[in-house]
């Protein structure tokens, strides 16, 4: 319960800071506030993916069933947040560069993450009856987990000729001064706490589901 309360307070604080307190960035004005939402969303999707990868790895090592529950729950949250990130990203790109989609390296890596989640869940659907399902899922997740850093090396080299360098590269290289950086940090913390709560909810769902099947 404390975590929920704590997160409630931090969330409200970050909300207040984002929408009212922090000074808008030089050129972008109001829309620059979206950074404080978009970046944490992307961060949580990656965090969820990493947690799912590590959970699958430990499931392989110790093959205790609750690790696979963590991997699945974390993947659920990751899927939801990566969808949100893609939506907010493209909405914002509409303003920044005038088109909903223009192959910015950040966008492609998040989309790849979304593709990975979709692939993972389609696998999960198909193997749900199979006794080897947990093993198949975690092996695939580990393969994806190992392959994903490679894209980070590839992303900046992606179609370098077509990619216009914006005044402010909207994803991360924003010239953040101290206040903005502080607000971003708080927002990141509040979203991570939110992730933690959602993880607890999903784990609860899986535990209840397995209880149901057992009887």
């Amino acid at each position: 319960m404390i975590v929920i309360l704590l997160n409630g307070i931090v969330m409200m604080l970050s909300l207040y800071l984002i929408y009212i307190w922090v000074p808008p960035a030089a050129i972008l004005g109001e829309t620059s506030r979206i950074v404080y939402l978009h970046v944490p969303l992307a961060w949580v999707s990656c965090l969820a993916f990493a947690v799912a990868g590590i959970a699958s790895l430990s499931f392989l090592k110790k093959s205790k069933i609750n690790y696979i529950v963590y991997a699945r729950s974390s993947a659920h949250i990751g899927l939801f947040f990566s969808i949100l990130t893609v939506i907010t990203g493209s909405l914002w790109a509409k303003v920044m560069w005038g088109s909903y989609w223009n192959w910015d390296p950040r966008e492609t890596s998040i989309t790849l993450l979304l593709l990975l989640y979709i692939a993972y869940f389609s696998l999960q659907q198909i193997v749900s009856g199979n006794p080897k399902a947990p093993m198949l899922e975690s092996v695939y997740l580990i393969i994806a987990f190992v392959a994903s850093p490679f894209l980070i090396f590839v992303a900046p080299r992606l179609y370098p000729t077509l990619h216009p360098e914006p005044v402010i590269n909207a994803q991360g290289q924003l010239m953040l001064d101290t206040e903005m950086r502080l607000v971003l940090a708080i927002s990141l913390v509040s979203f991570t706490l939110l992730y933690y709560i959602l993880l607890g909810l999903w784990v609860r769902i899986y535990v209840l589901k397995s209880k149901l099947h057992e009887e």
């Binding site: 929408y19 004005g29 109001e30 829309t31 506030r33 979206i34 939402l37 978009h38 969303l41 939801f80 949100l84 939506i87 907010t88 909405l91 914002w92 509409k94 303003v95 939110l194 959602l198 909810l201 999903w202 609860r204 769902i205 209840l208």
Partner: peptide
């Protein structure tokens, strides 16, 4: 600006609905 409104609307409604759905499921 309108975009900021839309983006925050998407984010916050999404999260709240997600929480409510999960809660009801439990």
């Amino acid at each position: 600006s309108k975009t900021l409104f839309w983006v925050s609307a998407v984010v916050w409604c999404g999260i709240v609905c997600y929480l409510v759905v999960l809660h009801r499921k439990i």
